[in-house]
Amino acid sequence: MDIDISPLIENWQFILTGLGFTLALSALSIALGAAIGLVGGVLRTYGGKLLDSAIGLYVDVVRSIPVLAILVWTYFAFPLVIGESLTPFSGGVLALGVHLGAYITETIRAGLTSIRPGQMRAALALGMSRFEAIRTIILPQALIRMLPPLGSLIVIAVKDSAIASVIAVPELLRQSQVLAGKTFRPFEIYTAAMLIYFLICYPTARTIDRVYRRLGVLGAS
């Protein structure tokens, strides 16, 4: 078997564009997911029964549907509901963010409920409001405690961004498909794409592990 990496070298800008989209898509869906997860997790824990069940329903529904189904629904079906079309990229961010948000919501809720009630009492006893207590005392500890699962979710978000290729977001996998079809060198191109994903995901996972080993003790009340 002969290996020919010239298609990679000749089309490096094309691949770089894909990488750019992958990073942007991941970053924005993580940002959206984190925003949803923070609000959802806090409201589910401290917002009373009604909010708890409403947010719980969102979480459970999203957790039982494949990302692929959420992506195609958001991109193809949702525009018919709102009467407004979406670009593949914004559809991708929306779908991946809403999907990730459910998992982050659950993770943050688990973190918040794991902090023992005495911490809230101590904060209230100082005269803090519940909101201040959650923001300055409970949430930081919960986030530190939940760093490992949150880190896995970040890695999963990067990997899931590749599924947005099915709605033609020009991210790394999509660009690779186009290139592989054009050059007939699937081995070189898909292998290169695989390596690029690995070089993003693996160090990210390790870095989060390392940070947690340093910070972990600060979340242990």
């Binding site: 290729s165 996998l173 592989a180 699937p186 081995f187 898909y190 794409a193």
Partner: peptide
């Protein structure tokens, strides 16, 4: 664990016949 499953499937689907 650190690469997308969808890409793994593509890889096997296109690379095994083409390269091997």
């Amino acid at each position: 664990r650190a690469t997308p499953l969808i890409l793994q499937i593509y890889w096997i689907f296109y690379v095994l016949p083409a390269a091997f």
